[in-house]
């Protein structure tokens, strides 16, 4: 559960994620994720739809989503890449957008696009179990299972790594046939649980 103190300013949150509030609050649905017509069309096209509401007022508002774990991410001008289904709330000052993820998205079962959040402020992301934050640095690249990946921030390059060999097709695969490799400088958030992915079965 996430408690947000609102003092006249606004918070953007996933539609329907408010569980309680005190004080005076106004909830307004933002069509198209509050990104205007262009954002709306982009999201519709990319399948990264998210219904977002704007919460404005005075008091405290509590958000929660399916009893999943909530992780706060502090952004200082950098960019956070997160799946729209994992994004719970952002400060109104943060800009959201979509970006192409390539083959990685396909292996996660989450589509080829992902949501970006940038600016200064805090964002709340959900995960199944508390997320582990792992640092990626030039001397230590990180390899992540697509099903456990939830978000990353910073200047990180990702590449897709496949271990599919003839053994995979004979039922003797290593069980970790698809992996994402992160290189550069930044942080990667992984959850202690795996989504169902195509990759999980081979």
């Amino acid at each position: 559960m996430l408690a947000v103190d609102v003092t006249g300013d606004a918070v953007k949150a996933k539609n329907g994620s408010m569980v309680a509030y005190d004080g005076q609050m106004a909830f307004k649905k933002l069509s198209g994720g509050g990104e205007g017509i262009r954002g709306m069309v982009t999201r519709r096209l990319t399948g990264e739809q998210m219904t977002v509401m704007e919460v404005r007022g005075q008091g405290t508002c509590w958000f929660a989503d399916r009893a999943s774990e909530i992780n706060l991410v502090q952004l200082q001008g950098d960019k956070l890449y997160v799946e729209s289904s994992n994004l719970l709330a952002t400060d109104a000052g943060l800009r959201t957008g979509t970006s192409f993820t390539g083959l990685r998205g396909a292996t996660q079962g989450n589509g080829l696009f992902t949501t970006t959040v940038e600016g200064h402020g805090q964002a709340a992301i959900t995960s199944d179990g508390p997320a582990v934050v792992l640092r990626v640095s030039p001397q230590y690249p990180l390899i992540v299972d697509p099903g456990a990946y939830i978000a990353h921030q910073g200047d990180v390059r990702q590449s897709f790594q496949s271990g599919v060999t003839f053994r995979t097709f004979m039922g003797e695969g290593g069980g970790e046939a698809f992996q994402i490799r992160f290189e550069g400088n930044g942080l990667v958030y992984v959850q202690p649980s795996e989504r169902n992915t195509i990759a999980g079965d081979v």
Binding site: I143, D145, G147, G173, G174, G175, E176, Q191, P192, E194
Partner: peptide, 14 residues
């Protein structure tokens, strides 16, 4: 499928 992430070079074989 229980590995979620790793550093270094690790091979997984059936």
């Amino acid at each position: 499928g229980k590995m979620i992430a790793y550093y270094g070079s690790i091979d997984f074989n059936g």
